[in-house]
């Protein structure tokens, strides 16, 4: 039985034209877009659409996904000119006669919609994205009052999807630039009252490939599917770096 034998027959269902970026470095085919007509079923998401194509049209289509509920960050894609999470984006909300789906721009394509995220993760690891403490650990847990926790509210929402990293013009020109996501995480620990790693983290962001390469273009803010203000975090780190130069914390 071929995969098309199980294709649902949805007579009268509204359809949409879908153009999907295809590229397989293992073949001689050049990068191109494949088009299909896909029925819109209920509150179908872009991820549902990709599964529909995988199951009924082309079993070789490559894309990433995991949680299907907008918390893992695996399925970030470039849909109709915007950075979106495939699992969170409903087709009806796109309000477009055609849907164009591409991988995250400016990152090396491994296959179809799957990009190489290694540089992103390498920079993320560099910033020591964990709580650094020097004092003896408390008997039970590290306490933090609600007001202090509130300061991190925006930053802890980051799901590391890489949309901001892919959309940052400085990342495009400077391969050593840490990128918005890593800097947001850096700021998240900088404002964390329990963390004691400010001194060693400062040298990671106070240099010419750190916060100073950010020119407040705000592409990261526009790209973020979680509405995080990365530029605010980066500006906060800049002020922190200047304060440290003059003997501040």
């Amino acid at each position: 039985m071929s995969i098309t034998d199980t294709k649902p027959q949805l007579e009268g269902a509204k359809t949409v034209t879908v153009n999907i970026f295809r590229y397989d470095p293992a073949t001689t085919d050049k990068p191109h877009y494949d088009s299909w007509q896909v029925p819109i079923i209920g509150s179908m998401t872009v991820l549902d659409l990709l599964f529909h194509l995988l199951e009924h049209e082309d079993g070789s289509l490559a894309f990433r996904y995991a949680c299907r509920e907008a918390i893992c960050g695996s399925c970030a894609l470039y849909v109709n000119g915007s950075y979106r999470l495939a699992c969170k984006t409903q087709l009806k909300d796109l309000k477009a006669p055609e849907i164009n789906i591409s991988p995250l721009p400016h990152l090396k394509v491994i296959k179809d919609l799957v990009v190489d995220m290694d540089p992103f993760w390498e920079k993320y690891e560099r910033i020591k994205p964990y709580l650094i403490t020097r004092d003896e650990p408390p008997e039970k847990e590290f306490l933090q009052d609600p007001a202090a926790r509130l300061k991190m509210d925006d930053m802890v929402d980051c799901i590391l999807c890489g949309a901001c990293y892919s959309g940052c013009p400085t990342v495009w020109t400077d391969p050593d630039y840490l990128g918005p996501a890593a800097l947001v995480k850096m700021n998240r620990f900088t404002v964390d009252t329990r963390d004691q790693g400010n001194k060693e983290r400062t040298k990671l962001f106070d240099n010419e490939h750190g916060v100073w390469r950010c020119h407040t273009i705000f592409n990261c803010v526009e790209a973020c599917p979680k509405d995080i203000n990365q530029t605010y975090s980066i500006q906060h780190l800049k002020r922190r770096a200047v304060a440290r130069r003059f003997g501040g914390k």
Binding site: P119, R126, D176, D206, N207, E208, H209, W212
Partner: peptide, 23 residues
């Protein structure tokens, strides 16, 4: 040169741009 290509990441070394930014 990318981060993975170099032994010593450039952004871990040397002075920052805090004073230049302030000025």
């Amino acid at each position: 040169m990318s981060v993975r290509d170099q032994g010593q990441p450039a952004w871990l070394v040397g002075p920052g741009g805090a004073i230049a930014w302030l000025l």
